[in-house]
Each structure stands twice: as structure tokens, then as C-alpha cells.
């Protein structure tokens, strides 16, 4: 039972208290570029959740079973990137084969994700935090969900509020989006301290 609670804590902290986008500011480029509509950001968000949930344990296995025994920790960055890129490539083929709808809604975002630093960031954080294989899966899922939550919130604000508002010219587009992201990050700071000071 306590094990389950612990997993829940890892998940929730990845989603809220240490949200990879709003506390680490990772994955900003697609966050700014694809957050104009709720529908497309939902597709991108779902793709990120899926890819993170799989690549974290995948990279954990490569790291724990190949790199660490051979004392090749310094190769982590490059190996992780290659593993992520290959996985996304294969995933795209599978999605395209299996379901047209899924490909139309999610598959077209996959090439975007290959170079998303949040994905690599999650894999590197899970090593720094010395998670186990199971924890890395939970952490990857949580980080993805947190990223999706942030981009959905941003898309909601942009679609419903910013599009209808009159902005000074210098603040249009990415500028106001960054200001909004900053305020969202402040709001998310309010989550820290929850979960018993872990």
C-alpha cells in the first residue's frame, strides 16, 4: 500500500510540483508554437505523454544494463537522444499502420517530438533522481501529463482570451505567451509543499 502511495507521490510531483515545463522550462519551442488551439495541443500533449512514458523506462534499461556496467555514463546524452529518435521513428510507422485516425491526430506530431528537449530532460532527471525501472515509468508518464496539462492550459488561455484581446503590438504572439507562461509557473509554485515536504 505504501508502495502505491509512493508511486502516486512520484506521479503527482511530476505533474504538479516539479512540472517539467513550468519549473524547468523544457520543451518550450513546441509549447509556444503549437499552443494556439486546444485541439492540436491535445494531440501534441497526448503524443508527449506516450513517448515520455515509454522512452523513460527504455532509457533506464539502456543506462542501467549497458552504460553503467561499462562505466560509460558520459555517453548518456548522445545514447538517449539516439534511442528516443529511433523509438519515435518506429512508433510513427506503427501508428500509421494501425490506425488512420490515430495517425491523423497524433502521428503527425511525432517528428516534432523527436527533438523536444522535455523528452530528453525527463530521461536525464530520472537518472539524477535515481529512480527504479517502475518509478521511471511512473515519472515519465507524470512528466508527460504535466507537460500536456501546461500546454492545454496555455492553449485554453490563448484560444479563449488572448485571441479576443487587444494587445500592444510589441506583445503579440510569443511575447505575451511567455508572459502568460511565467504567470502560470508562479501559480504552479503554489503546489510545492504539497505532498508532505518530500
Amino acid at each position: 500500500m505504501s508502495e502505491l502511495l509512493y508511486f502516486l507521490a512520484v506521479l503527482l510531483s511530476a505533474v504538479f510540483t516539479s512540472n517539467i515545463l513550468l519549473t524547468n522550462y523544457l520543451g518550450m519551442c513546441s509549447f509556444l508554437a503549437v499552443s494556439k488551439e486546444i485541439k492540436t495541443s491535445l494531440g501534441l500533449g497526448a503524443a508527449v505523454v506516450f513517448v515520455m512514458a515509454i522512452t523513460c523506462p527504455l532509457n533506464w534499461m539502456v543506462s542501467a544494463w549497458v552504460l553503467e556496467p561499462l562505466h560509460l555514463e558520459y555517453l548518456r546524452f548522445i545514447v538517449f537522444i539516439v534511442v528516443i529518435a529511433a523509438f519515435v521513428q518506429v512508433l510513427e510507422m506503427i501508428v500509421e499502420r494501425v490506425s488512420e485516425t490515430l495517425y491523423a491526430n497524433l502521428g503527425i506530431f511525432l517528428p516534432l517530438i523527436t527533438v523536444n528537449c522535455a523528452i530528453l530532460g525527463a530521461s536525464l532527471f530520472m537518472i539524477i533522481r535515481k529512480y527504479t525501472l517502475a518509478e521511471s515509468f511512473v515519472y515519465g508518464t507524470g512528466s508527460g501529463l504535466g507537460w500536456m496539462l501546461a500546454i492545454l492550459a496555455m492553449a485554453g488561455i490563448r484560444q479563449e482570451k488572448l485571441n479576443q484581446s487587444k494587445l500592444p503590438r510589441g506583445l503579440e504572439g510569443p511575447a505575451i505567451a511567455l508572459v502568460v507562461a511565467g504567470i502560470m509557473a508562479l501559480a504552479f509554485m503554489g503546489f510545492s509543499g504539497m505532498g508532505g515536504g518530500n
Partner: peptide, 11 residues
């Protein structure tokens, strides 16, 4: 050489 070999093997 180990580093190089592992990298090549992974790729």
C-alpha cells in the same frame, strides 16, 4: 574503444 564500440553497437 569501449565507448566507441558501445556507441556503434547501439546505433
Amino acid at each position: 574503444l569501449i565507448g566507441l564500440g558501445v556507441m556503434c553497437a547501439v546505433v
